[in-house]
């Protein structure tokens, strides 16, 4: 009986390039979904407001506050 020739393809644990390519679109969509999830909970953080939310075209106006200079504490 002839033994079949076997060869290991490159893998990381059970992850191979083939099944990684198969999962990639779904993982990308989960990446987008989790980004919006993070956006929800960082909505009130000033650093996130300045870097991400204020540059948004129309919606960004919500985070841009222009109080009268007279009303600011000295």
């Amino acid at each position: 009986m002839v033994q079949p020739l076997t060869k290991a393809i490159p893998h990381f644990g059970k992850i191979t390039l083939q099944n990684l390519a198969y999962y990639a679109p779904n993982l990308a969509l989960w990446g987008g979904a989790s980004t919006f999830g993070l956006f929800i909970f960082t909505e009130g953080v000033p650093v996130f407001q300045d870097t991400f939310f204020k540059p948004i075209p129309v919606l960004g106006q919500h985070w841009i506050k222009n109080p009268d200079p007279q009303d600011l504490p000295q």
Partner: peptide
């Protein structure tokens, strides 16, 4: 159809809902 787009849509709607 996909859970990732469903959850993503919910988070996106939640993000818009706050302001």
């Amino acid at each position: 159809k996909r859970n990732s787009t469903f959850v993503g849509t919910i988070f996106f709607a939640g993000f818009l809902f706050q302001p």
